[in-house]
Structures are given as C-alpha cells and as structure tokens.
Design a protein around this nucleic acid. Structure first.
Length: 230
DNA sequence: GCGACAG
DNA sequence: ATCTTGTCGC
C-alpha cells in the first residue's frame, strides 16, 4: 500500500503552521459515501529509556466482529520533538511507513490524536488522511483547544466542542461514568459520522477497540525490540 | 502578563 | 509520550 502523498510539511515551526492552514482547505468534511467494514487504527509508542526510538503500529479490524485481520509496523527515530499543534511533525512519518506495509486497505483509519479539533484545523488525523488517501477520524484522550459544553454521565452522551464560534469536534462518553474521548473528523468524514463510528467500535473500554488494539500492538513491538536488543 | 498546551 | 507511589475496586 504505497500511495502515500507527500504533503511537503516544512520542519520550521512557523512555516509548518502556515502549511497547516493551507492544507486545511483541502479537507473533505462531508459524510462518507459507504458504511465502513474494515476499520484501521494507528498508534505510536516510544522507548522508555532516553533512546530516540519510535514504535509505530497500524491494525485493521472487521467492524462486525472487532477482530484484528491485519497489522503492520515500523521502528525508527521520530523526526521532530513533540510540540502541541505540531504533533504530526513527530508522529506522521512513522505511521506512514507502517501504513504502507499494510496488505489490507481499511475503509477508515482511527488516529490517536485530533482531526480538525486543532488550532489551525489540521491535526494529525487530517494530515494522515490526506497522506494515506484514506478517510480518517481523530480520537484523542485530551482536549487541545476549544471548549466543550456539559455532557451527560452515560455512554453515548456527547457535547459539541466550540472554538471561536465554530464546532470543531465532540466530547464523547464511550462508557458510563468514564472520562470522554475527543472526536473530530480527519478527512472524508463529518462530525456526526465520526461520532457514530467511534460509538460503533467502542468495545468495553474508554478507548475504542481499534485504537486499543493499535496501542497494544505498538507496546508489544517495543517489548519485542527490548527482547532482541538491549 | 498569565495560563493552556493532542502525544 | 514515559516515569513514579500509592490507592481503590472488581
């Protein structure tokens, strides 16, 4: 799967900000044309010691069974230090390499981070959506920007996230009495479809099952590397 | 000027 | 993200 498009994101922070604003205009935020059957998810773990090593994992699950049917990974150094709002500079390249090794083409990929719920409306999920050429949805564990309206205590409760008068995403309760996750379109999705998708694969934990599997895969990848080396 | 700040 | 110490609950 080597259809990765080069977005030409500069490594200079200010130039990268500007490029994010440009690329945000290319996003397709309409509802997906067909219901997804194969759900991908991507996550990255990092070395516990100081070594500059990233462990990227992408998995593909069948939506009906929530079973993993494909996985791919990549290990190597991240290109950039983490900076809020420039998360993709650090994480995107590693996930692209893993994604290219996938033998299956998912209908949508869940990303551990924000989509348009981002200061310049171009979070990691947006960048990967354009790069992969596959629809993406962002599902973050914490808010980056904007303000959420109050939401109910039960699973399925949701509240708009507003930033500068604009709806940029939803806080979504995936389980009763558990902290919400933060859902926003990456590319090829609208708000309502993104929230519906997360609810349809929420599984039994706060983190939706595909992302939980991707997280496990990246952590296991790191464990295997420690096993092999030092 | 003072916080806030995906992973 | 990762580390850290203890605590609460199934």
């Amino acid at each position: 799967m080597d259809i990765a498009r080069d977005l030409h994101i500069p490594l200079d922070a200010e130039a990268a900000f500007q490029r994010q604003r440009e690329l945000a205009r290319e996003l397709d935020l309409s509802s997906p044309t067909r219901p997804p059957r194969l759900i991908g998810a991507a996550d990255v773990a990092y070395a516990k010691d100081g070594s500059d090593e990233a462990y990227a994992a992408v998995v593909v699950l069948e939506r009906d069974t929530l079973r993993v049917i494909d996985r791919a990974d990549w290990v190597g150094p991240p290109a950039f230090d983490y900076l809020p709002g420039l998360f993709a500079l650090r994480e995107a390249a590693t996930l692209v390499e893993a994604f290219k090794k996938l033998s299956t083409r998912p209908d949508v990929v869940l990303i551990d981070g924000h989509g348009i719920a981002h200061p310049r409306r171009f979070g990691l999920a947006c960048q990967l959506g354009l790069t992969f050429g596959v629809p993406t949805v962002g599902c973050a564990k914490k808010r980056l920007c904007g303000k959420a309206e109050p939401l109910g205590p039960l699973h399925g409760s949701r509240a708009r996230v507003l930033d500068k008068g604009e709806t940029i995403g939803y806080a979504l309760r995936t389980q009763d009495g558990i902290k919400p996750v933060w859902v926003s379109p990456g590319n090829g999705y609208d708000h309502a479809s993104a929230v519906d998708l997360i609810m349809s694969v929420r599984g039994e934990y706060r983190i939706p099952e595909p992302l939980r599997q991707a997280h496990n895969a990246s952590v296991e990848l790191r464990a295997a590397a420690v096993e092999a080396n030092g």
